[in-house]
């Protein structure tokens, strides 16, 4: 299968390793990965902040870029290592197209809504693609995924509630050889990111983050894994600020699902020359 990678702007610019890991996983399964060069961003930050007019060109660019590849047969599906960006593509793009027509925007395009919906229909979140389309049920057996250590898993809100990912991400993590996934108390609670919410309501966001960080560290896991780089940047930023460390004095990290799945016996995920989850599982984080 030919698969277009929508890296998402935050992964492209800040967490290239997550996109690299996604490429590895898909290629390991024998699929061909394409990176449409015109891609940039889903526009979610603008949309969720109410800046629809500013979101419109971002959405247009996304739809135009990906539909060209679909139409030209360059790829069959698109995948992004982010639940919230995929949710935006699937649910919000058509909405902003409608908005533009209703408001009589100069650059409104009556065809955009249907085109956006068509792109959305063929766009998948990573765990969704792996589970539902590519039939991956056992990461160790099918991807060679191996990562010794203990992690907690945070299911990000948009993957959970907008995409209804259910246990797809969790099941993939659980099937990684050597990996112990511990229960995260209040896992379904938002980490407090929420895009510009984190700055507009910084105090509330920080209070939510503090509870998430405390819950993660209470598990004793060496890292928190998730499927959204933006939430992980938020959680990681909190862990870093609080200088949370494991019993083995390693910093408590955040890991993207793709990085975990890409890790193998031959090429295990490492940090600073050591195994990624050093310091786990013995004892609790502090």
């Amino acid at each position: 299968m030919k698969i277009a990678l929508f890296a998402t702007c935050i992964v492209d610019a800040m967490y290239p390793r997550v996109a690299q890991a996604t490429v590895q996983i898909l290629e390991r399964l024998g699929h061909e990965v394409v990176f449409p060069a015109g891609q940039a961003c889903c526009g979610q930050m603008h949309l969720n902040s109410g800046y629809f007019r500013e979101a419109l060109p971002v959405v247009e660019n996304h739809v135009k870029t990906f539909e060209a590849g679909f139409d030209g047969g360059e790829y069959d599906v698109a995948v992004a290592p982010s639940g919230s960006c995929v949710a935006s593509v699937k649910h919000q793009h058509a909405m902003v197209a409608r908005w533009a027509v209703e408001k009589g925007e100069r650059r409104a395009d009556a065809t955009l809504e249907a085109r956006a919906a068509a792109v959305g229909d063929r766009t998948f979140e990573l765990a969704q693609l792996l589970t539902d389309v590519l039939g991956v049920t056992d990461a160790a057996a099918q991807l060679g995924s191996y990562l010794p250590g203990t992690i907690a898993y945070h299911p990000s809100c948009h993957g959970m509630r907008l995409l209804r990912l259910g246990d797809r991400q969790l099941n993939l993590l659980r099937s990684v050889e050597g990996l112990d996934v511990v229960d995260l108390p209040e896992a379904d609670q938002c980490c407090g990111f929420g895009g510009t919410f984190a700055v507009k309501n910084a105090d509330v966001s920080s209070a939510m983050l503090a509870d998430k960080v405390a819950n993660i560290c209470g598990t004793g896991a060496a890292a928190c894994a998730g499927g959204d780089a933006s939430c992980l940047m938020h959680i990681g930023g909190g862990l870093s600020r609080e200088q949370r460390t494991t019993a083995g004095d390693a910093p408590v990290r955040t890991l993207h699902l793709a990085e975990v799945l890409a890790s193998t016996r031959e090429h295990p995920l490492t940090f600073d020359g050591g195994l990624a989850l050093a310091g786990s599982p013995a004892g609790g984080a502090r």
Partner: peptide
Amino acid sequence: RGPATGGATSDGATEGEAQ
């Protein structure tokens, strides 16, 4: 398309890590 970096490279690993 030729091996992608095996696992995460040491370079890629520290980058973007909020630690």
